[in-house]
Simulated assay, not measured.
Amino acid sequence: MKKILVFILLLVSYMGISQGPRVLIVTAHPDDETMFPATIFKITHEMKGTADLALITDGSGGYNGLVASSYYGKNLTDSTVGRTYLPLLRKKELLCSGEIMGIRNFYFFDQVDDYYQLDPLPFLAGQRWDIDFCDRKLDKILKEGQYDYVICLIPSEEQHAHHKTASILALRAVQRMKDKKPVILGGRSLNKNYTYSFTQLEAYPETQILSTAPVFYFDRSYGFGENNKHSYMIVADWVKACHKTQSGDMNSSMHKGELETFWYFDINGSSKVEETRMFFDVLRNSGFPTK
């Protein structure tokens, strides 16, 4: 009975009688948000919440636009051309993506998007990025934003070092907070039959997942409306289509990944697991309800 009452209170709160959930997304590259765009869309459009996005890199290393080179009239697979034009082009693409998702504020950190690698240590140690600047800026954003949730990418071993570093920066910033702390979640899109699992990134204890918490999810492929031909997959496709400079990656990911999945970090403690579970229940029941 207590759980039902809490669920009703959350539902009433998030459906417009009071302010909806406040969310900060922390990612490394423009297009990283394509891992969970339907969740953000539902928060901002259907739960009447707000979402801001902190982008750590300048996006200058994304030489993935073979078809986009024709679209933009520039050889975006060439490093010299890319370093010159990609930062501005990718910011514009992120603004397009953000308009669809309902992003309120963008915070650009403009750290170098140097090259693909796996080790986050050179970045966290300040050898490649200005970590002191990043820490101060994240601290300020979190303090002023008073967020309920922070969403980053799950920092698994096979991920780009930039992804891992951005997520660790977000985790450490939440840890540093003195007052009410938001729940921080690590997200990624997966197929329904996924076998992926995550426990912790070795050598970074702040990335440990609370083993007793479920993996939260939103099924963006669930059909509704006339002949069940509608789903929130279209939102993900709209967002992916904004990132034209990344035409290779976006082409291969279009209309794939039915689930937007979220891992609950141990630093949140166990007291907010049930609240987070109910948050996702409300999310799934907002707008056009899904399972």
Rank of each mutant, 00 (worst) to 15 (best):
D132Q: 15
S156Q: 08
S97T: 03
L76K: 02
R83G: 09
G62Q: 07
Y107F: 07
Y63I: 05
N105K: 00
F133D: 02
D113N: 06
Y72M: 10
T84Q: 14
G145M: 03
F123S: 05
L169M: 05
F108D: 04
L138C: 06
G145R: 09
T80C: 15
K180V: 12
W129H: 10
E157A: 08
T77G: 14
H163F: 10
Y116F: 13
Y107I: 04
V150P: 04
F109K: 00
N105I: 01
S167V: 06
Y115D: 05
F106R: 06
H163G: 12
F108M: 15
M177L: 13
K181P: 01
D119A: 07
Q111G: 05
E144K: 04
F109D: 00
D114L: 08
Y85C: 10
V183S: 12
L171D: 00
R104V: 01
V174D: 00
A68D: 04
I154M: 09
Q146V: 04
K74P: 01
E158D: 09
L86N: 08
G82W: 12
R136V: 00
I154L: 06
D119T: 09
D113C: 12
T77R: 14
F106C: 00
S156R: 07
G102V: 01
K164P: 02
C152V: 12
W129N: 08
R104N: 04
N105F: 12
E144G: 07
D113K: 09
H163M: 10
G65I: 10
Y116N: 02
D179I: 15
D78L: 15
E144R: 04
N75F: 12
G65T: 03
F109A: 09
I168Y: 10
P120A: 06
V112F: 14
D179G: 15
E144T: 04
R104H: 03
D114M: 12
P155S: 02
D130T: 10
D110P: 13
L153C: 14
D114F: 05
P87N: 15
K181A: 00
V183K: 12
R136Q: 03
R172I: 07
Y72G: 09
Q175I: 04
H163V: 02
Y116H: 13
T80Q: 07
I151V: 02
L86P: 05
S70V: 04
L89I: 11
R104M: 01
Y71K: 08
L88I: 07
F108R: 13
E157C: 15
Y72W: 06
L118A: 08
A170R: 00
M177C: 04
Q159L: 08
P87R: 15
Y116I: 09
L66I: 07
N64M: 07
Q111S: 09
Y63D: 11
L171H: 02
L95T: 13
N64I: 01
